[in-house]
């Protein structure tokens, strides 16, 4: 069963110009994105800056109102469409969708004690005080923090500990979906490993459903069940994690994988085949947006936009040549 189904989601921003400030173009930040997240599944949304991955997550949280498309969410007592829901009607749903932020320094109120920070969502949702205290202790234990932490202020804690506090707050109401936006990218390596392991533990224990937005393909390989790769506002490939890394089916995925420096000097000097830079979402190239950089480009790629299609069970890619080219992964 799916917790979330995103269907042809679009978020466009008008570009105004000229004397009359008329709309002269559109930035297609997200341009027809579809994916689903099953109960207990972690889907990673990856891509380079400007690809639209954060815009997708902000639409799901309704921090942004989508231009079109559907975001069907299983709220437990029926399915609702978050895309068209009036903001007021979102309120009772917010408890079901919680967020883990990138920066554990700016996302915790420095004037609140840790116990109050974690209890806040409980308080807002009318959980009685006695129950709140018990729940805070349970949550601190869940994220492997000592109980004494609850009477201290965030500044007393390191970045990794603050991230644990943020995770405890996100889990306070047993959300049906957790959206984590780059949750480990601001942390030192030694602390990052602790948080990755914690997320793996929590996935196992709580059967979390999670949208994991990240740019670091190494981190993603550790924590996600499936991966969706975005390029210039569209998903170019979705696949189970291991299959995507071993045998990518879209040239952009191959490029991304080849670009990651592996922590192994013997693998040095692998060649990245694609050149150039990420296209501008205000002026995406015609046809396949990746075609100016693609080493496998053919004429039709320059004119016809490929649609996301299933090329093998569970493996979706939007490439005209997906069935004829052999792409290299990382074993």
């Amino acid at each position: 069963m799916n917790v979330l189904e995103v269907d042809d989601l679009k978020k466009h921003y008008p570009i105004h110009g000229g004397m009359l400030r008329r709309e002269v173009g559109r930035v297609r930040a997200v341009d027809g994105v579809s994916f689903s997240i099953a109960a207990g599944e972690t889907l990673a949304l990856v891509g380079e800056s400007g690809c639209g991955k954060t815009t997708v997550s902000r639409c799901i949280l309704r921090a942004l109102t989508p231009t079109s498309g559907a975001i069907r969410f299983d709220a437990g007592d029926g399915t609702v469409d978050l895309a068209t829901m009036p903001k007021r009607a979102m309120r009772p749903l917010r408890r079901h969708i919680q967020m883990i932020f990138q920066d554990p320094y700016s996302s915790l109120n420095p004037r609140m004690m840790v116990g109050d920070i974690i209890a806040e969502p409980l308080k807002v949702n009318g959980v009685p005080a006695a129950e709140r205290n018990a729940r805070v202790l349970e949550l601190l234990d869940l994220v492997q923090m000592p109980a004494v932490a609850r009477t201290r202020f965030p500044h007393a804690f390191s970045g990794g500990q603050r991230q644990r506090i943020g995770i405890a707050r996100a889990l306070a109401l047993n959300p049906r979906l957790v959206v984590a936006d780059e949750p480990v990218s601001a942390l030192d390596v030694s602390v990052q490993a602790q948080i990755i392991n914690l997320l793996l533990d929590l996935q196992d224990r709580l059967k979390l459903s999670m949208l994991f937005v990240a740019h670091d393909l190494s981190v993603v390989r550790h924590v996600s069940d499936r991966v969706a790769v975005m390029y210039v506002g569209r998903i170019v490939e979705i696949a189970p994690t291991d299959e995507l890394y071993r045998s990518p089916r879209h040239p952009y995925t191959e490029t991304l994988l080849a670009a990651v420096p592996a922590p192994d000097p013997l693998r040095r000097g692998r060649q990245m085949k694609a050149s150039g830079e990420v296209a501008d979402p205000a002026k995406p190239p015609p046809g396949c947006a990746f075609h100016p950089r693609c080493p496998y480009v053919q004429d039709r790629c320059r004119t016809d936009r490929p649609e996301l299609a299933e090329v093998a069970p569970g493996r979706w890619t939007s490439c005209h040549r997906a069935r004829e080219i052999e792409l290299a992964g990382v074993a």
Binding site: Q192, A193, N197, D216, P263, V330
Partner: peptide
Amino acid sequence: RAVPSILATPRQRLATI
């Protein structure tokens, strides 16, 4: 040992400091 790797196996835990 703590560095996440592009070569990891699914759900592989990391050694921590």
